[in-house]
Design a protein around this nucleic acid. Structure first.
Length: 420
DNA sequence: TCTGGGGTCCTAGGACCC
DNA sequence: TCTGGGGTCCTAGGACCC
């Protein structure tokens, strides 16, 4: 049977999350910043219209923000994650044949839905999500994921589509591809877009009709798949069960430069502790840790330095204490005095399910005791507003990430609930 | 003049995604 | 002075095996 995919995408997701709890932000220019209040990561339509680009450093648009009284917010990923879960739960009510693709997107398999009902189905879905969560979404439908992405893109921008566009076997498909810039095609990033432009390929339609061998030579097998998908040949299927993650990381830019080993180890310990939590949440353990640290590469007036250390654990682990002890040693091995560090991180690799962890003959740790300790730690921290953590993670944390424009954490902090 | 063939595993780097 | 964080896949090249 021929496939039909729908891509459901939340509009300006982080901004929409802020608006749910602060209705006065409707119809106003609003932006949400990355960690450390560094870059713009979400923009309302009003903010986009002012020319504020995606990913731009905030200091570059400061004058626009002041002049147009743009509402500016630090990011709150726990809130957005919570809102995302609510949206996904509503979608799951529509069909279990669903793949959560990112925090604000999901693919649905609508192959079995009657063609005549698709647009109505999409409108109903849109209305329900909005009513139950407050989040506006757009829906694009087509034969392949890549085409559904394009349909969604147009649904979002075109007033006539009213948020839903079905391009499955549509007479408008060719016109849609003609009007789509090749750089907006899923799988075409800045580097490939530049290559394609040089080759005279500037629209999605031209890419669809390009010569396959020529594209594959430069863009590899993924480039060829993109072409196939544009032709309606399905190369990417719905993945309902995401495979186990291969790596998980906690990396942060510092609120102010770190110059001492003591502070660096405090930060690294903190990141390793968060990595441990992430691993345990997935019921998994890591076989290797990578610790890295880096100075500010944007500055040309200071010495630059990047280094990383890979540590193989004797036995795969998710024990925060154990991860911390290896990570801080790794940090010490690559830390150099006299530098101003901007960012650091801990990456866990060789991830295996907890129950598949191979024992080690020379392993001296008490695994049962560790397991109980971690369970207790996680239980306390899940309930308590006064979390517990390893002393190595520090208390003052002068390096901590900046969030100066944070609104209240309406759904994830007891002290900051919305008051009505 | 002419230096095998076929495979695996690992790593680094480059590209992409949101 | 100021520039995010967390992932994936693919490819090329080197080391190693028989």
């Amino acid at each position: 049977m021929e496939t039909v995919f729908a891509l459901v995408d939340c509009n300006n997701f982080y901004v929409s999350c802020e608006r749910v709890f602060q209705p006065r932000l409707q119809n106003r220019p609003v932006i949400v910043l990355s960690n450390n209040d560094g870059c713009v990561v979400a923009r309302s339509n009003e903010a986009k219209a002012l020319g504020i680009g995606m990913g731009v450093p905030i200091f570059q648009v400061e004058s626009i923000l002041v002049q147009h009284q743009v509402e500016v917010y630090s990011s709150k990923y726990t809130l957005y994650g919570n809102m995302s879960r609510r949206v996904m739960e509503v979608l799951a009510d529509f069909t279990p044949r669903m793949e959560i693709y990112s925090i604000d997107e999901a693919f649905l398999d609508l192959s079995e839905l009657a063609a005549a009902n698709r647009t109505e189905y999409g409108q109903n879905l849109r209305k329900t999500v909005k009513q139950w969560t407050g989040i506006p979404v757009s829906v694009g439908m087509a034969r392949t994921k890549t085409l559904a992405k394009i349909a969604n893109h147009i649904a979002k921008k075109s007033p006539r589509a009213a948020g839903v566009l079905d391009l499955t076997d549509s007479p408008w498909l060719e016109e849609a591809l003609r009007q789509t810039d090749v750089k907006d095609v899923w799988g075409v990033g800045p580097a490939f877009a530049e290559f394609l432009k040089q080759a005279g390929i500037v629209t999605a339609l031209q890419l669809r009709d390009a010569e396959e061998t020529r594209i594959q030579k430069r863009m590899g097998v993924t480039g060829r798949r993109t072409m196939q998908e544009l032709r309606g040949i399905c190369c990417y299927s719905l993945e309902r069960q995401p495979p186990l993650q291969k790596a998980t990381a906690v990396t942060r830019s510092f609120g102010r430069p770190v110059t001492t080993l003591e502070h660096m180890q405090e930060a690294i310990a903190c990141f390793a502790g968060r990595v441990g939590e992430k691993l345990r949440r997935q019921k998994a353990a890591a076989g290797i840790l990578t610790v890295f640290l880096i100075t500010n590469l944007f500055r040309t007036d200071e010495p630059r330095y990047f280094n990383s250390k890979v540590i193989s654990l004797p036995t795969a682990s998710s024990d925060s204490g154990e991860l911390i002890s290896y990570a801080v040693k790794g940090a010490a091995a690559i830390f150099r005095q006299g530098l101003r560090y901007k960012k650091a991180g801990v990456i866990a690799g060789q991830i295996v399910p907890q129950e598949q962890v191979q024992g080690n003959l020379f392993d001296e740790a008490d695994r049962q005791r560790s397991k109980r300790l971690m369970e207790t730690l996680d239980r306390i921290n899940a309930k308590s507003s006064a979390p517990v953590w390893y002393a190595a993670e520090g208390i003052q944390r002068q390096w901590q990430t900046r969030f100066q424009k944070r609104s209240k954490r309406f759904t994830t902090s007891w002290d900051e609930l919305k008051e009505v």
